[in-house]
């Protein structure tokens, strides 16, 4: 029985990227709209790691921000444990906010440079009135620091005294402080060196096992995603083109874009596998191609693909939004 924690339906986000009103009137330009996320539906099951992969402009970070409420959605619906995230009243929202958290990409920007680490980690505790006294809060902060592999004494320092990996640990401790069930991880290791990335990825897996966390893991790096995710969604220009179980996606990719991404991964095992160079570049999202947005780069595109937009076809293995894809 699958147990859905987060259910996203037909999520859409449009950004207004046009010039200010006065300039538009003077230069006689139309309003410019950017469809950053276009009708994305997905479900994240309790206890799993669901990964969203995509290149720049794919809308992966926009989806993450909408799920945690940092951005409003233009259309669509997000249910968190059966509760509609866009409808709740004050008290309900407050209770909900405790249950999800986010880890950000840049550990140098995600910690307030003027605050000591103690204060940074304790902020959610304070906000949600989670500990009865100042000393209880302090004790909890020390526990959290040790949980993420730091020393309890590190709390009195400022963020600039730490390396990137240590800062990311602090950010994780802050995310954990309100005892959330669900954590959105937005490229948590892409700003880190590889040897440190391994530490952080291992830590995140350990914490998941220990605390029963559910992750939404956003990344552009397929190898990292392969390592972390139970299920993977592939985004291209704001659309979800394929969703599949982690192993299955790598063994048997169905969407031509997924295939292209997989082929472009460098051959680090030195197996002599020929690395295929992808064709073309991501089109400008303000003016996307007609029909299936991938058709200009797609090796198997037909005339039909240029006109019609493929919808997701569901099957046992997952879903794929392509007219020509095989392997169901």
């Amino acid at each position: 029985m699958k147990d859905t924690l987060v259910n996203v339906e037909n999520l859409t986000r449009i950004f207004d990227v046009s010039k200010p009103w006065l300039n538009r009137v003077i230069e006689r330009e139309e309003k410019k709209l950017l469809l950053a996320v276009n009708g994305v539906s997905l479900e994240i099951r309790r206890g799993e790691t669901f990964a969203l992969v995509g290149e720049s402009g794919s809308g992966k970070s926009t989806i993450a921000k909408m799920i945690v409420g940092l951005l409003s959605a233009s259309q669509g619906k997000i249910d968190f444990d059966g509760i509609d995230l866009f409808q709740p009243g004050g008290a309900e929202m407050r209770a909900l906010r405790q249950r999800y958290q986010m880890i950000f990409q840049d550990p140098f920007a995600s910690l307030n440079p003027r605050w000591r680490v103690n204060k940074i980690i304790a902020e959610p505790l304070r906000k949600f009135d989670m500990e009865s006294s100042e000393s209880a809060r302090h004790k909890r902060v020390e526990e959290l620091l040790e949980l993420v592999g730091m020393s309890a004494k590190d709390g009195v320092k400022f963020p600039h005294e730490f390396s990137g990996g240590q800062r990311q640990r602090i950010a994780i401790a802050r995310a954990l402080s309100s005892n959330p069930e669900f954590i959105v991880c937005d490229e948590p290791t892409s700003a880190l060196d590889v040897s440190v990335q391994a530490q952080i990825l291992n830590l995140m897996r350990d914490l998941q096992d220990e605390l029963g966390l559910t992750y939404l893991f956003i990344s552009h790096d397929l190898s990292v995603v392969r390592h972390m995710a139970n299920r993977i969604g592939v985004l291209y220009l704001g659309r979800l083109v394929e969703v599949a179980d982690g192993k299955e996606l790598f063994r048997n990719p169905r969407h031509p874009y997924t295939k292209m991404l997989l082929n472009a991964i460098p051959d680090l095992d030195m197996t002599g596998r020929e690395v295929a160079r992808p064709d073309g570049e991501i089109p400008n999202p303000i003016n996307p191609p007609s029909g299936c947005t991938f058709h200009p780069r797609c090796p198997i595109a037909t005339e039909y693909c240029k006109r019609e937009i493929p919808s997701a076809r569901n099957s046992e293995a997952g879903s794929v939004a392509c007219f020509e894809a095989t392997g169901d």
């Binding site: 940092l70 950000f104 990409q105 906000k127």
Partner: peptide, 26 residues
């Protein structure tokens, strides 16, 4: 737009407090 401000918004801190505690000192 820095992530520490987003982290504060995420937990639902009042905009006034975010301005005062996070943005102002920086």
């Amino acid at each position: 737009n820095k992530e520490y401000v987003q982290a504060a918004r995420l937990i639902g801190l009042h905009p006034f407090l975010i301005m005062l505690r996070h943005v102002l000192p920086n």
